Computed example of a mutant assay.
Amino acid sequence: MDAARGAVMSVKELEAFLTLEFPQAFGPGKPHHVESVGRNVATVRLDADESHLRPGGTVSGPAMMALADVAIYVALLGQIGPVGLAVTTNLSINFLRKPSPGPVFADAKLIKLGKRLAVGEVGLRGPGSDELVAHCVATYSIPDRPAA
């Protein structure tokens, strides 16, 4: 999905922006990747390696929280464009089951997009599964933007 599907930024444009703004997480050899973007939705993948695991061999809670946060941010940017200073104001996550090491997918959907706030939810899942490993709801604050 991309701009043709209701997003103002394509996957390629989002990856370029995120690589520039968040080089610790995006870019060549980094763990996060934008899989798709569309009208009020996005999917982001975390290639969880040993640095993302906790004792017991499962993906850590902080890694999943970061993935959920990034996924809502990507869905938001897909609608409002490259606004680097949009920030999380609230995030709540429920861990449902242990994800195995490897890719984790975050499917984000914006529930409300206003001028100053956006609310979204994210389902986290393993590859090839619809069974959620975590569910997240988050609110983003959107800074004032210049008039078009």
Score class of each variant (00 low, 15 high):
residue 135 H to N: 12
residue 33 H to I: 11
residue 95 F to H: 14
residue 47 D to I: 02
residue 2 D to T: 13
residue 106 A to V: 11
residue 123 G to Y: 04
residue 121 E to D: 12
residue 17 F to Q: 07
residue 20 L to M: 14
residue 107 D to T: 11
residue 134 A to F: 05
residue 20 L to E: 15
residue 77 L to G: 01
residue 49 D to L: 09
residue 89 T to F: 05
residue 137 V to L: 10
residue 67 L to I: 06
residue 10 S to M: 03
residue 78 G to N: 05
residue 45 R to D: 02
residue 55 P to G: 03
residue 72 I to P: 03
residue 3 A to W: 00
residue 114 G to N: 03
residue 110 L to W: 10
residue 38 G to T: 01
residue 103 P to I: 07
residue 70 V to W: 06
residue 25 A to G: 04
residue 108 A to T: 08
residue 125 R to F: 07
residue 54 R to E: 05
residue 63 A to N: 10
residue 51 S to T: 15
residue 126 G to Q: 14
residue 52 H to S: 13
residue 66 A to Q: 14
residue 134 A to K: 00
residue 106 A to W: 07
residue 118 A to R: 05
residue 123 G to S: 06
residue 117 L to V: 15
residue 5 R to N: 12
residue 61 G to W: 00
residue 141 S to R: 08
residue 11 V to D: 01
residue 97 R to Q: 10
residue 110 L to Y: 07
residue 94 N to W: 03
residue 28 P to G: 09
residue 12 K to C: 03
residue 122 V to A: 12
residue 10 S to G: 09
residue 102 G to C: 09
residue 120 G to D: 09
residue 90 N to T: 12
residue 67 L to C: 11
residue 114 G to M: 09
residue 128 G to N: 12
residue 100 S to A: 15
residue 78 G to D: 00
residue 46 L to Y: 03
residue 43 T to V: 15
residue 100 S to K: 15
residue 141 S to Y: 09
residue 76 L to Y: 04
residue 83 V to G: 04
residue 30 K to Y: 05
residue 82 P to S: 04
residue 42 A to D: 06
residue 9 M to Q: 00
residue 92 S to Q: 11
residue 83 V to C: 08
residue 55 P to L: 09
residue 80 I to C: 05
residue 105 F to G: 00
residue 93 I to E: 13
residue 45 R to W: 00
residue 63 A to K: 14
residue 141 S to V: 02
residue 141 S to E: 05
residue 124 L to W: 02
residue 122 V to M: 12
residue 59 V to N: 05
residue 111 I to V: 15
residue 70 V to S: 06
residue 23 P to L: 02
residue 79 Q to Y: 04
residue 122 V to T: 12
residue 118 A to G: 14
residue 142 I to G: 12
residue 136 C to M: 13
residue 27 G to N: 10
residue 117 L to E: 13
residue 96 L to E: 14
residue 28 P to H: 07
residue 103 P to A: 15
residue 110 L to D: 03
